[in-house]
């Protein structure tokens, strides 16, 4: 019952100094889903994660993680979750193997089970040859990988990742994404992640909520969010202005929103990839030669900029 799920209803968090970090959030995450909180610094993402992971208490609202209430059953929640915070949580004097074995023992595994688990996890994150070295000698990327391994010791059903790739170089970022994807898709772990990077949310998440000033301002699957911003954009370039003028007139018949500037004609249209062939056909029938063609979909950046701008207007 409730295993691998998250449910939040009307969550509010007001800090002692009166600052409202989370201002009425409700959401539901199903088992095996990858859910992303996307928002700028100070939007309330980390506060929400702290509450979900039992480090902080909600001011009001109901928060259930893995079927247990974080307020009344924090210890039961702790068995269900693994948490990767922005900063790694490693005792750097220990070796990679030691910290994994201790973590396993703290989760009540026998000494032998702890050893096996540590070996398995070191292999999984590609640190099998580094297990006997002290963590202070690890690189930043290695520490992140080990931190993830420590998080997975007790095979949690839900994995929380608070800005998991902030400060990582592109190579390590890709590796982290692959690992998160594998855990989510192959092992069925529910993933809840926060990020400032639209690309990250787009790459990983099944469902995205954009959070700003403690509130969810837009949410949906990545594709749907992108569509909500508007249509795709097709950009044609022609040999000269005259050709472009003819083309603009022609394209204008089949699509409403078009625009000409010098040799360039842009067409705004829903599902451009389906219409582009048809438009090219129309042009070639009139012997108009296309010099260059470009189709772009709106990115999550566009969504993000639009919803946050709308918020500010209000």
């Amino acid at each position: 019952m409730g295993e691998g799920t998250i449910q939040i209803k009307d969550l509010v968090k007001v800090y002692k100094d009166g600052f409202t970090a989370v201002n009425g959030i409700s959401l539901k995450v199903d088992k095996g889903e990858c859910y992303a909180f996307l928002g700028p610094n100070g939007a309330g993402k980390s506060t929400a994660v702290k509450i979900l992971t039992t480090l902080s208490e909600p001011t009001s609202g109901i928060v259930q993680v893995g079927g247990f209430d974080v307020k009344t059953d924090p210890d039961k929640v702790r068995w269900e979750i693994g948490v990767v915070l922005q900063e790694t949580g490693l005792d750097k004097e220990l070796t990679g193997r030691e910290i994994l074995e201790y973590q396993a023992r703290l989760f009540h595994m026998t000494r032998r089970m702890a050893k096996e688990r540590a070996t398995h996890l070191l292999e999984m994150v590609g640190l099998e040859n580094e297990g006997k070295r002290q963590i202070k000698k690890y690189s930043g990327g290695m520490r992140r990988r080990l931190d993830l391994a420590v998080t997975l010791v007790h095979e949690p059903a839900i994995l929380f990742l608070d800005e998991p790739t902030t400060g990582l170089d592109p190579l390590n970022r890709k590796a982290m994404w692959n690992e998160i994807r594998r855990l989510n898709k192959e092992e069925g772990v529910t993933v809840f992640l926060t990020t400032q990077y639209l690309e990250e949310a787009d790459q990983l998440a099944d469902y995205i909520s954009i959070i700003n000033e403690g509130k969810i301002v837009a949410s949906g699957p990545p594709e749907e969010l992108k569509e909500s911003v508007g249509a795709d954009l097709i950009t044609f370039e022609f040999k000269n202005k005259e050709e472009a003028g003819k083309a603009a007139w022609l394209l204008g018949k089949s699509s409403k929103a078009d625009y000409q500037k010098g040799k360039i004609v842009t067409v705004s249209i829903q599902e451009a990839d389906r219409h582009v062939v048809q438009l090219l056909g129309a042009l070639s029938r009139e012997q108009i030669e296309v010099a260059r063609l470009d189709v772009t979909s709106p990115t999550l950046d566009d969504v993000f900029i639009r919803v946050t701008a709308e918020e500010e207007k209000e």
């Binding site: 915070l85 949580g89 420590v150």
Partner: peptide
């Protein structure tokens, strides 16, 4: 300072 304290708090220790 290392964050290990927060890590321990997230376990049932």
């Amino acid at each position: 300072e290392s964050g290990y304290f927060a890590r321990l708090l997230q376990t049932p220790v």
